[in-house]
């Protein structure tokens, strides 16, 4: 079977399920990825995002559902016949082969002419800025360089789709930022569709065209980074996207919005879904600020200086712990009033 053609229209997951014993790791996932698109699969650990990636790769068999590349059904095709590129979390470089042989491995497996392999490996090395390291063994490279080899090995075959499984999780913070920029650069140069798994929402926001949030094996929201950041579809997604203040409340209609109670204070919020009775209020720490006439009265418990501002935890009058930011100097024991713009107080049904 010939490798998948470079120009496809879309990869489609249709009701994909995967169970391990009695545990459903992936439940009815439906998703389509267009050509050239960068899609991030995110979620807390154990949410099934790596399972989903392995199903797409062909490393795991589906329990139910189907995977299509345009009109070609993929889920009975072995990983070696799908023709996708993959970057593994631990890079999975062949430790006994030089960088050159690692990158050329797939081309050699296809019995391409030696000259062609050498030329394409050199191009890939140049792309990831590793020319000059071709004859080293992976063990002689730093973590960031190994990462570049893994990327070069995945893209040298010019695959229609590149899969990346938490590729930056083994790097330190500084290198992670650097490699993030590298990945963005390589993606824009090659334009290959990419599915990127990460547990780091910031990484997903900065890289992806579209983000898929998986929680407990189910798709909870699919949207652009802006949509996910500003308007999570439900409280679980909000929690994952950094809405640290999640408070149970009751709601009363008031004009366009609703009035909710947070930490003993009444404040207006924006209903995200039709409400009835009990609700959950979600506010980002960045949106909760000390204001003179804020409705919530709270006492600062911990204040951490973060350079430009303070990140703090305060206990409200009713005992709720609230996370917020302050540009003004504050210290533990201070009592202050907190408030948030109504548009940034998101209200979900409980």
């Amino acid at each position: 079977m010939a490798p998948a053609p470079h120009d496809f229209r879309e990869l489609r997951l249709d009701g994909v399920c995967r169970a391990f014993g009695h545990v459903n790791a992936l439940h009815d996932v439906t998703l389509s990825v267009g050509r050239g698109e960068f899609v991030a699969l995110v979620g807390p650990s154990g949410c099934g995002k790596s399972t989903a990636l392995n199903c797409i790769a062909g490393l795991l068999q589906l329990s139910a559902g189907a995977i299509w590349l345009d009109d070609r059904r993929l889920d009975d095709v072995g990983p070696e016949d799908r023709g996708f590129g993959m970057v593994f979390q631990n890079y999975a470089l062949f430790p006994h082969m030089t960088v050159r042989r690692n990158i050329g491995f797939g081309l050699a497996a296809q019995h391409r002419p030696k000259a062609e392999i050498a030329r394409r490996v050199d191009e890939a090395l140049a792309l990831v800025r590793l020319a000059g390291h071709a004859e080293k063994l992976p063990g002689q490279l730093s973590g960031g360089q190994q990462q570049r080899v893994a990327i070069a090995r995945a893209v040298v075959m010019e695959p229609p789709l590149v899969l990346m499984d938490e590729p930056l999780s083994n790097l330190d913070a500084k290198l992670r930022l650097e490699m993030r920029a590298e990945i963005r650069r390589i993606h824009s140069m090659l334009g290959c569709s990419t599915i990127y798994v990460t547990h780091d929402q910031e990484e997903a926001l900065s890289l992806a065209d579209r983000i898929v949030v998986l929680i407990d094996g189910r798709t909870r929201q699919i949207g652009t980074p802006e949509e996910l950041y500003t308007a999570p579809a439900n409280a679980d997604v909000a929690e994952f996207m950094g809405y640290r203040n999640l408070v149970a409340s009751d709601a009363e209609p008031a004009g366009d919005g609703v009035m909710v109670t947070v930490g003993g204070g009444r404040l207006p919020g924006t209903p995200m879904r039709p409400l009835g009775g009990r609700v959950v209020v979600a506010i980002r720490p960045d949106d909760l600020r000390p204001v003179l006439d804020g409705p919530i009265v709270a006492t600062v418990e911990i204040a951490e200086y973060h350079g430009r501002d303070f990140y703090a935890v305060a206990r409200a009058e009713d005992g709720t712990d609230l996370y917020f930011r302050s540009e003004r100097r504050i210290a533990a024991g201070d009592t202050l009033r907190l408030g948030a713009p109504p548009a940034r107080v998101l209200v979900y049904p409980a």
Partner: peptide, 8 residues
């Protein structure tokens, strides 16, 4: 992985 007949 989905297996071929030969592998089976």
């Amino acid at each position: 992985m989905p297996k071929s007949l030969q592998e089976r």
